[in-house]
Amino acid sequence: MKLSSNKYYQTWFKNPWTYVTGAILLSIFQLVTIATTDGAWGVTGPFAVWGAWVVQAFGGSVDHWYFFSTESGRAALDRTFLTDPASVRNLGVIIGALLATLLASQFKFKKIKNLRQVGAAVFGGLLMGYGSRIAFGCNIGALYSGISNLSVSGWVFALFMFAGAFVGSKLLVKYFMQ
């Protein structure tokens, strides 16, 4: 029998898991995250630290940057990639996603349709990166971890995220539908 038609293979690796299954697993593992690392789950925080490490590797200094002037900011700089839980976790997300897509045999380099897509991705990425640094994080650190840890800031973030998504979807339909 072919592996691709095996029902256990299809259930576990091929077909997407339901949103409820995903939500339950996320809830369990964010608790594991807090218990083992003493910090809430976040994704984009380490990106800023990686950037600072690159600057330092080229002899630059980020000591006078406001972002790293806090105690936690300085502590993050003093760690290395392998001793920084958030950095290792981010790497795990990438490896896990790759593994999942390979197991489902759905890996593919998607073709770029037009330059507009590239421009929007770069510009949108910059906005998201900057926005997440002046907020308390991205939709994981600020929204998910905020709300699940009973912080009002998470709900405020949610409100403005919906407003942003509304404007974004209008722009999407206007500029990407031809």
Binding site: K110, K111, I112, K113, L172, F176, M177
Partner: peptide
Amino acid sequence: LGEACPIPLVKTEK
């Protein structure tokens, strides 16, 4: 092909 969400859905609806 090459279009991310929600563009395929909006195009299909149209």
